[in-house]
Design a protein around this nucleic acid. Structure first.
Lengths: 346, 346
DNA sequence: ACACTGTGAGAGAGCGCTCTACGGCGCTCT
DNA sequence: AGAGCGCCGTAGAGCGCTCTCTCACAGTGT
């Protein structure tokens, strides 16, 4: 690869100026004579010069790279580790996060390195990567509660921003959704549709998001004079949603409205309802959460509570950038409001 | 960040040896006295030293990073560009590719930078990134035919490996599936199930994968004495599959078997069939392609032709690594065999 | 006893860039 | 007219690492 042999020195010689002047032109330092600037630019074009990033990073101490970490709780088994990335991306949620992050970063000429921290060694890799200065900070998306990564990052004083409030206490910034508000909206919508025999399939209750969605849902019903609601806990997967629905139907065969704490579970709920001869939405109305792509491909398409994921991801990247630039030093939280998207399932 | 102030020099002083010796220990050069090696290791542990990657890259001319590029044909409109990443990851396919790539890279302590080259400027960014030496090579996944990126990479002599044979001729390595064989398997399976009035919803026919799947399907039917098969072209999306099925049913209301060239289209096919009163598989058997996650969540679960995507992605990463290391200099192709996964839709 | 090989550690020259000094120039101000 | 003050460029010192070259020393053969 002879493209590496071109250095600032070569361009400087070509343009008849010094190395430093070329560097100034490249870094757009204003105090350069416009005529000289043009000469240098022409020389750069002529030679096809591209600065070497490692050399620049060495002195600026900036990698212009951030780590985008998907962090799990600890998969012990090796095949589960290998499938981790595939499982993660099976949820359209992550694609939307990536989309938002990239949308922000590309305007700043920064780039994301994709890392998976699903086991202890993988977590150490992430930490080492940051410590080596290969990335300037980390964006963390946890798939499980009790993710040990945020506290570790905080301890190493690495700039970091989490998607969702970390369950383990750690002084890091995060963006999150007003999950409770989302649960409340789902309840209110079902009530507005005239449903009174409601139930909910919750997310994992060790996850703050799971708890808060349930709490908001309950809260709204309590205010409407319905303090007791049947609940069944799910695991945010289609199968777990289906299983939870089976349990609910056994005890409460006459229910007419279900709030599932995410869309895949709502799809499972719909499948079970249909198998048991209930029509959606005529007999039972179903509300999901997240507005992921399954909400649209589901039969029927799901009414769901939308998280502005892309916007949240963009904000997450922006806050990280501010931490890196030193414009922001204290951990910050930023909470977004959900939005109800009404489709055919209610 | 004072963690940057620790250098080789500090460790050398701490261990009472020279900088070079510490470097040797870190790079596991064998010709170091075991006793000294231990002393140095202890000093590294004591000080918590981590090498600075930029400095190392500067001299080794290795970034230990590869670009994982998702390349489109050219989205002009800005909001389409922003949604590109989300659309890409809506297809579980990419999650599986990422999974395979990461599985290989992590054993080599290399890392993937995620890049999207859906427009001209974005493509230039990718090229600049490689030229700056921030990545040692590129893994390219094209979403459209006529992707201009592979020839550009070839021209710049950047080590690169594509997922699927590039439509535009370029001397780059690639991994691919024996798509024709997959089409043949689908046809044979439908014939084995006793179906004789077959049709197919093809992929985009400007894409080699689309052409080859169709060609294989036709070939098998021709051998079975059925030279004419109704076809309708789709665009690899659910909606396009549904629309194609509508057209097929208009002209051929009595068909009893459909091969859709990917799973989302097969799902669209199933939806239309159900709406038009056909039971799947009793009245019409449906075969998909890819074995993506929709194949499982679809009603009914899809019989489909599976690509060993993770394995292909792993191989792609391995070949790239070999190119980077200089162990492999000529463009190489590696073709994988598909596998039929039988589920409820046939 | 001597040169001869081999082994392991140190010295030092960069890798390509940025950035702080500093110097020369022409201008204004007193 | 001389000092002062921008303004624009240049020189040169690193950033932290790798790696070649060199050298010291011990062990071997004659």
């Amino acid at each position: 690869m002879q493209r590496q042999s071109l250095t600032l020195e070569d361009v400087a010689r070509e343009a008849g100026v010094s190395r430093a002047t070329v560097s100034r032109v490249i870094n757009e330092v204003p105090s350069v004579d416009p005529a000289i600037r043009e000469t240098v630019r022409a020389a750069i074009r002529r030679t096809g010069y591209t600065p070497n990033r490692a050399a620049r990073s060495l002195v600026t101490r900036r990698a212009e790279t951030i780590a985008l970490v998907v962090s799990g709780a600890g998969e012990e088994d090796e095949s589960a580790q290998n499938a981790f990335a595939a499982r993660v991306f099976a949820d359209p949620f992550f694609g939307r996060i990536v989309s938002g992050v990239v949308a922000f970063l590309r305007t700043r000429s920064m780039h994301p390195v994709l890392m998976f921290a699903e086991s202890g060694p993988a977590r150490d890799d992430v930490l080492a990567y940051l410590r080596e200065g290969r990335a300037d900070g980390a964006l963390v998306v946890s798939t499980h509660a009790e993710d040990p990564l945020p506290p570790l990052l905080a301890r190493e004083q690495v700039p970091a921003v989490c998607f969702a409030r970390p369950a383990l206490p750690a002084p890091v910034s995060y963006v999150d959704l007003a999950h409770g508000e989302g649960g409340r909206m789902a309840a209110q919508h079902l009530l507005d549709r005239g449903r009174r025999r409601l139930a909910t399939v919750t997310g994992p209750l060790d996850l703050p998001a799971g708890q808060q969605r349930l709490a908001g849902f309950r809260d709204a019903l309590e205010r409407a004079g319905m303090p007791y609601v049947p609940i069944a806990e799910g695991g945010f997967t289609l199968d777990s949603g289906a299983a939870a629905m089976v349990r609910l139907l056994e005890d409460h065969p006459h229910l007419d409205g279900v709030f599932a704490a995410n869309d895949p579970m709502a799809q499972g709920v719909c499948q079970v309802l249909r198998e048991r001869g209930r029509r959606v939405p005529q007999d039972v109305a179903v509300v999901g959460f997240d507005d992921s792509s399954v909400a649209i491909t589901c039969t029927p398409p799901l009414t769901t509570v939308r998280q502005p994921v892309e916007e949240m991801a963009r904000a997450m990247a922006r806050i990280l950038q501010e931490h890196i630039e030193g414009e922001r030093t204290e951990p910050t939280s930023l909470i977004f409001e959900p939005e109800l998207v009404v489709r055919a399932s209610t």
